[in-house]
Design a protein around this nucleic acid. Structure first.
Ligand SMILES: NC(=O)c1ccc[n+]([C@@H]2O[C@H](COP(=O)([O-])OP(=O)(O)OC[C@H]3O[C@@H](n4cnc5c(N)ncnc54)[C@H](O)[C@@H]3O)[C@@H](O)[C@H]2O)c1
Ligand SMILES: NC(=O)c1ccc[n+]([C@@H]2O[C@H](COP(=O)([O-])OP(=O)(O)OC[C@H]3O[C@@H](n4cnc5c(N)ncnc54)[C@H](O)[C@@H]3O)[C@@H](O)[C@H]2O)c1
Lengths: 233, 233
DNA sequence: TCGATTTTGTGAACGCCTTCACCAGCTCGT
DNA sequence: ACGAGCTGGTGAAGGCGTTCACAAAATCGA
């Protein structure tokens, strides 16, 4: 059994724009990851079943998702790995690198700043800022030192940042988010367990680790409780 | 959210099944968080509008969710904060503490191990294990030292662990998951960007930070591209 | 007591997403 | 050339979740 997560509070797909379904967008990164692996193994083509296997999505769902791209697999053969990879990359904007600013260089922030997994997936952390003067100047990873939060506006404008990762304490999150938005950030990945208020046009995705555990706990509770087997009406 | 498999067999379909809708379960932690805050401010009651405000969920959705609990607010007044808090806590199993084991004490694992936000929300990390002998013995937080991965089975059994947080490198994740399941773990929170294969009855929730950024990037791309403003109609 | 006001609970409508079922198109062996 | 076997594309159906709209129930002031 696997549970689906996903609080997707992004703008609903409207009928008039050519946008992909939200659920599909959320899965494209998974396909991309799988395709990269397949390519490394030398596979030139792959079937929807293979992608299903690698991602945990049903094969029918894979085909439906890819059909939204206008993708062209070949019946009886499958999808061309390299071609599909390029197509998905283009669809989700991985043909360019996205400059990201990380705010809050504490326990979590430092781990994220040091994470090499972003670079290979289209994002580049171009600055790490913190409000604590004592942390400013500290190097978190090669080529990346903690900068002062005072310079946030300048950093965002000068380095063409449109995406921010928010890893400050909860009590500072809303205030920081306001500053980010004012400086031009239009996407925020928020780790602070609080619902951010942002204007229309700004996307927020929330990662709440404690809540994830609570959801798991709910199901644990149900597993251990003696389930009433439904018999008759 | 991000991954979803074939069988999500939560629907008992039986009338005696007390199961809550998945989407509702995912929001209960948010309500609980909001209620805790409200209680701290001294509010005795709150309306669905207030909860909506605090969580970012629509008020109609809040009411629908709470109605699934069999909870009864008072018309014209709202919900009793303390009572609702207790009711939600019971529904998602927060009347007990859940013992959690964390595997992989690297950058991310150490940050998670030091995070105080789990304790107040029903989970307690009772062990941190790592395969690197050099890390064994290191203290990550008061009362918690890194233990050897060899002792994983014993830890899980002796400390009544049913939930695991997986923070090892990607290449080790599936193997570790297999060991966890064999030792009796039935819920896994996985940070490694890979789709775990687990037997029925085991829940997996996936946190893929890089994928979150990719999803934001998709929307960024659409914002900046010369959007065809739908005029017709 | 009564009417104005607030706020819940909920059936119904709606929309999104997944799954099903099956046809179309490709390869390969003979 | 042709049939057998794969595999993608896709309309239809069904399930799930959110939103709408409003009746019911409670409080309050006069
Ligand atoms: N540590 C975890 O594993 C973890 C897990 C889940 C959620 N979170 C959440 O992530 C956030 C960060 O957690 P953490 O453990 O890294 O906290 P932390 O206290 O270790 O680090 C927070 C950092 O933010 C800086 N900061 C404070 N105010 C700031 C401001 N206005 N501008 C810029 N920087 C500021 C602080 O100086 C500090 O360095 C918190 O909201 C926490 O709830 C953390
Ligand atoms: N660091 C981040 O911010 C971040 C962000 C997103 C995802 N992730 C993912 O989280 C996982 C951990 O990331 P990290 O940055 O902490 O990596 P890391 O290399 O810093 O730490 C991994 C730790 O796991 C230990 N380990 C390896 N094999 C093990 C095994 N079989 N059993 C137990 N422990 C084992 C290693 O000794 C090491 O201490 C990775 O899968 C990574 O992709 C990390």
């Amino acid at each position: 059994m696997t549970l689906l997560p996903r609080s997707t509070r992004l703008t609903g797909a409207s009928t008039t724009d050519r946008g992909l379904p939200n659920a599909t967008v959320a899965r494209l990164p998974l396909y991309l990851r799988a395709l990269t692996q397949l390519r490394a193994t030398g596979s030139a083509t792959c079937s929807s079943d293979q992608l299903a296997e690698a991602t945990g999505v049903s094969s029918a769902n894979v085909r439906k998702d890819l059909s939204h791209l206008g993708s062209h697999g070949t019946r009886g053969v499958g999808y061309d790995v390299a071609h599909l990879q390029a197509e998905i990359a283009q669809a989700i904007g991985q043909t360019q690198e996205w400059n990201v600013v990380l705010i809050g260089a504490g326990h979590l922030g430092k781990a994220l700043a040091a994470y090499p997994g972003f670079a290979s997936r289209g994002s580049r952390i171009v600055a790490v800022v913190d409000a604590d003067p004592e942390r400013v100047g500290e190097r978190v990873v090669d080529g990346l030192a903690i900068e002062s939060a005072d310079e946030l506006d300048a950093i965002i404008r000068d380095r063409a940042v449109s995406i921010a990762i928010l890893a400050t304490p909860t009590h500072a999150a809303q205030e920081v988010a306001d500053r980010l938005v004012a400086a031009g950030v239009t996407s925020i990945l928020n780790f602070a367990p609080v619902a951010l208020r942002v204007p229309d046009g700004v996307d927020v995705r929330q990662v709440d680790v404690a809540a994830e555990l609570q959801i798991l706990a709910y199901h644990e509770q149900r597993k251990s409780s003696p389930r009433e087997e439904a018999v008759s009406g």
